[in-house]
Design a protein around this nucleic acid. Sequence first.
RNA 1: CGGGCUGUAGUGUAACGGCAGCACGAGUCCUUUGGGAGGAUUUAGUUCGGGUUCAAAUCCCGGCAGCCCGACCA
Length: 411
Amino acid sequence: MRQSELFTRVERNAPKDEATVNAQLLHRAGFVDKLMSGVYSYLPLGLQVLRNIEQIVREEMNAIGGQEVLMPVLHPKSIWEKSGGWDRIDVLFKLESRTGKEYALGQSEEEVVTPLVMKRVQTYQDLPLAVYQIHWKFRDELRSKSGLLRGVEFFMKDMYSFHESQEDFDRFYGIVRKAYLKIFERAGLVAKATEASGGSFSEKISYEFMVLTDAGEDDILYCDVCEFCVNVTIAKQAVGSACPGCKQGKLHKARASEVGNVFDLGEKYAKDFDLTFVGRDKKKHHPVMGCYGVGVSRLMGVVVEKFHDEKGIIWPESVAPFRAHLLELGNASAKEVYDYLQTQGVEVLYDDRNASAGEKFVEADLIGIPWRLVVSEKTGGKVEVKHRTSKDAKLVTKEELVNAMKIQTKT
RNA sequence: CGGGCUGUAGUGUAACGGCAGCACGAGUCCUUUGGGAGGAUUUAGUUCGGGUUCAAAUCCCGGCAGCCCGACCA
């Protein structure tokens, strides 16, 4: 992609109202544009990051047998009355058409997926089943905040699983848990599986996947030795007390952002929508349901909160909008290098603009693409390669570039 | 939803109640080109409605919007 043709551009100043790093940097670097509080447009660079995260999530969900579907955002009132959500869920957006019909905007999709699955599940042989989608969600939050971290409209992966027994749900939960930790790891993050309350729809414990960041909204207690971690709102322990899990470590308190969650829905929705299957005992049963979310757009914000410096964003290679940022300085032309990299399948943003060297460097640091390549009169036919996190650059020929960019630098 | 702060050009910022200015950006031209270059020229603004006043960006009231704290976030 030629940067001269990119329809967004960077801004020198941060918007004065934004206090969080992700809101400031993503706006300045031209990744997103705020339409109103909690609602964003994703511009070319931002959309690419969103798609990259989405693809990681998709691959991991497919790997555990999830089947992707796309369900409606506009829902009839009737399904929300059946589950009781119409009156109970205060974040539910409700609309009325010109003929007076009432609708809801999806804030979660149990009401859609349960009847959908009911049409295709007859016996225990059809179970277990897991379907998911990656789509917009709407929640009428009283207060959006912190850039992409809490929106009224946000992009989310939601998966729903159906099981013939509680034991089978528990088994599957373990599989999803591993897949989730892998997703966050691939996005460059370390997440903790945290015990939390099940909310008003479930008496059972739920699990939240938390990334430690001061920009988050939750406080968690975690063990410094084992994996034990609990949301402070339901914690029975105090800061500094011994870990109830391993009995060795101490509990520490930290601020965190919830990037994923799991709910054990039991038989609630199956009963609401009368979803049954014929079991091995030849009798009718309600399946046990689970629901699993990953906040895709929030994840993008959390990545920026975790990976930035005073100059700008530092994208992990797995989610970066491009692998390389090619700058041509002065009268030199990097067109040949650009064409070559494209034949090698390297995603490259080519800064072919007529701008000063300093401006190009500053903007490249702000945008945060992992590898910076420079072609100038100084590089004498070679290309200068530098990782965003490194101070040192080296000169290589264009044929050596692909190899030179394989060397990972720790962020 | 309660409380606080704030609304001036695309962005950032000035202007005692008295001619709305500056910087960056954007357009054109010239010179520049290794860490936000220089010159010439052009472009673009007081959130909305009411009130006080000879006169309102400025004071008062209300709406709307943004941010922050809290509550909320099945």
